[in-house]
Write a protein that binds this DNA or RNA. Structure first.
Length: 210
DNA sequence: AAATTGTGCAACCGCGGATAC
DNA sequence: GGTATCCGCGGTTGCACAATT
C-alpha cells in the first residue's frame, strides 16, 4: 500500500458515522450561527467535527435548522404531498419547498411508510375483490397520532381509510373546501419527549445571545 | 414478563450535475 | 477539453421503540 492510500485510510478511519451526539449538534449549530451555512466540507473541518460535509449538511437541514417543523404531518399537508407527488413524482426536495418547515427526508419517509403502505393494501384488496377504486375524498388518520383521534372522513377505521386510494386519480377530486378537515394542529412536542428539544436549544441559544 | 414482529425515522450511500482548476 | 472536487438528491439501511403474541 502506498503512502497516499495509507493517508486516505487514516482519514476515513477518523470520520465519525452514525447518530449525532448532542455535543456535535452544539458544535455545528454554534459554527453555523457564527459563520453561516454552506461549503460543507470545509465547514466540517473548520468546526472540528469528525464528520463529512455531507453528514453535516444532512444533520443541519433535516434536524437542526431552527425553522424545521417537527411533529405529525397534518391532513392539509398530506393532501398537498399527494397532489404534488402526482405532479412531480419522487422529487422530494421540490415537494418539500412547498411545505414550509418540512424536509425532503421527512416527506420521503412519510410517503414510503404511510402512503405506499396504504397503496399496497389497497392494491391487494382490489386484486382479491376485483373492486375498482373510485374514492371521492382521500383522507386518513395520522397513524402515529395519539390514539382515538377523530380525523377520519367517514372511514370506519384508520388503517382502511386509504383502501380505495388509487394513484392515477388522486388529484382529480381533491376538494380542499368540502373535505371535512379538522382544524390544523401542530403537535410538535407530542413525540420524542425524552429527547432534548430543538426549541429548548434555540431559546437557550437566543438567551445567550449567540 | 419475555419474545417476536412491525413501524417510523435518522443517517448513510451512490449517483449525477455543477463548478473549479 | 479533461479531471477532480463539491454539493444535492433520491434510494436504502439500521436501529430504537411500540405493539402484538
Amino acid at each position: 500500500m502506498d503512502k497516499k492510500a495509507q493517508q486516505q485510510q487514516q482519514l476515513e478511519a477518523e470520520v465519525r458515522k452514525g447518530p449525532w451526539t448532542m455535543e456535535e449538534d452544539l458544535i455545528l449549530i454554534n459554527y453555523i450561527a457564527n459563520h453561516g451555512e454552506g461549503v460543507w466540507n470545509s465547514l466540517a473541518k473548520s468546526a472540528g467535527l469528525k464528520r463529512t460535509g455531507k453528514s453535516c449538511r444532512l444533520r443541519w437541514l433535516n434536524y437542526l435548522r431552527p425553522d424545521v417543523r417537527r411533529g405529525n404531518i397534518t391532513p392539509e399537508e398530506q393532501l398537498l404531498i399527494m397532489e404534488l407527488h402526482a405532479k412531480w413524482g419522487n422529487r422530494w426536495s421540490k415537494i418539500a419547498k412547498h411545505l414550509p418547515g418540512r424536509t425532503d427526508n421527512e416527506i420521503k419517509n412519510f410517503w414510503r411508510t404511510r402512503i405506499q403502505k396504504h397503496m399496497k393494501q389497497a392494491d391487494q384488496q382490489n386484486f382479491s375483490t376485483g373492486q375498482s377504486s373510485n374514492s371521492e375524498h382521500i383522507m386518513w388518520n395520522n397513524d402515529n397520532q395519539a390514539s382515538s383521534s377523530h380525523l377520519t372522513c367517514g372511514a370506519p377505521h384508520q388503517d382502511h381509510a386509504m383502501d380505495n386510494y388509487s394513484p392515477p386519480t388522486y388529484t382529480a377530486n381533491m376538494d380542499m373546501t368540502t373535505t371535512a378537515l379538522p382544524p390544523p394542529s401542530f403537535p410538535a412536542d407530542q413525540t420524542n419527549e425524552n429527547m432534548w428539544n430543538m426549541e429548548d436549544f434555540w431559546s437557550v441559544h437566543l438567551l445567550n445571545n449567540d
